[in-house]
């Protein structure tokens, strides 16, 4: 038997099937954009500030932006970095985070950047859940 939330999810998907993934993709590319698209301005702003600040502080600490995957740990770091969406692309284009890690704070910064990407993925999935009606 279908629950109320499942009915809402089905209704949301059948109403606009072509745009159901738009908040997910927008939220991945630009932190908070998925929530902005859904009119959740305060939530989106808080998410954007948190993720962008974490990414920026990571770069300010001279954290590394992963550019390739030589081993499994690099591969996991790269996957986390890619979660930052356009922030990662802009950082790479501007040549940020390219220095080798030599200080303890630079290692903290690398972790800040990876975790910012992972948090952004969580936020984008949350926007998708709002769109599909799994969450209100």
């Amino acid at each position: 038997m279908a629950t109320g939330s499942n009915k809402n999810a089905a209704a949301a998907q059948t109403a606009q099937p072509s745009t159901v993934y738009l908040p997910l993709i927008a939220g991945w590319l630009i932190p908070g954009a998925g929530h902005f698209l859904l009119g959740k301005w305060k939530r989106g702003a808080l998410l954007a500030v948190s993720i962008v600040c974490m990414f920026a502080l990571g770069l300010a600490m001279h954290g590394k932006l992963y550019s390739g995957a030589q081993d499994i740990l690099d591969l996991l770091g790269m996957a986390g970095d890619l979660g930052n969406g356009l922030l990662f692309v802009v950082g790479r284009v501007l040549g940020l985070g390219a220095d080798p890690v030599q200080l303890t704070t630079a290692d903290y910064g690398t972790k800040f950047i990876v975790v910012a990407g992972l948090l952004n993925i969580i936020a984008a999935v949350d926007a998708h859940n709002l769109k599909t009606g799994r969450k209100s």
Partner: peptide
């Protein structure tokens, strides 16, 4: 270059991660 102490880094990390967790894991 921003060079926080380890504890300040912990506080900043916890602040940002907690904000995202709170918003995404609860409804009201």
């Amino acid at each position: 270059m921003f060079r926080p102490s380890h504890f300040l880094a912990v506080l900043l990390f916890a602040l940002f991660a907690s904000t995202v967790f709170g918003i995404t894991q609860r409804e009201t």
